[in-house]
């Protein structure tokens, strides 16, 4: 089985760096984007297996990104994990039909993020 590809989107360079390192060390292929627009373009071009996105990003928010990907036939089933410091701003109805399966709040544990990634991918494979 080939390694899964995960797209990570965050405007904080340090977060982007630490998340990609954790995932790479665990054997995933990692793509990075530092804003919502860039993430949309990469997702459509590369068709990753999973998206990990921040909520508050310039140009296109994490939620808008997920909703846009949902509308595209090639990425309409792309699962997403949201990693945000503003989780309290999001209502359940906002994340409905957006492909967001899990939410993690910042500050976060890279270890826990990896566990969540594995759980989501296993569930989808089953």
């Amino acid at each position: 089985m080939s390694a899964k590809t995960i797209l990570v989107a965050d405007d904080e360079t340090h977060i982007l760096h630490v998340v990609s390192m954790k995932l790479k060390n665990a054997g995933f292929n990692v793509l990075t984007a530092s804003d919502g627009q860039e993430a949309l373009e990469i997702a459509l071009a590369e068709l990753p297996d999973l998206l990990i996105t921040d909520y508050h990003m310039p140009n296109l928010s994490g939620l808008e990104l997920c909703q846009r990907l949902r509308q595209e036939p090639s990425t309409s089933n792309l699962p997403a994990i949201m990693l945000t410091a503003r989780g309290y701003n999001l209502q359940p109805e906002d994340t409905q039909n957006s492909g967001i399966l899990r939410m993690l709040s910042k500050p976060f544990s890279p270890r826990q993020l990896l566990t969540t990634v594995n759980e989501v991918l296993e569930k989808l494979a089953a």
Partner: peptide, 26 residues
């Protein structure tokens, strides 16, 4: 308050994540 907490959480998130990476030997 919501802005302050977001602004404080962001550097704190980095600190926490990098410390954990060091502890986990990543």
């Amino acid at each position: 308050v919501s802005n302050v907490s977001h602004e404080l959480r962001t550097p704190l998130a980095s600190i926490k994540a990098y410390v954990e990476m060091l502890i986990d030997g990543e």
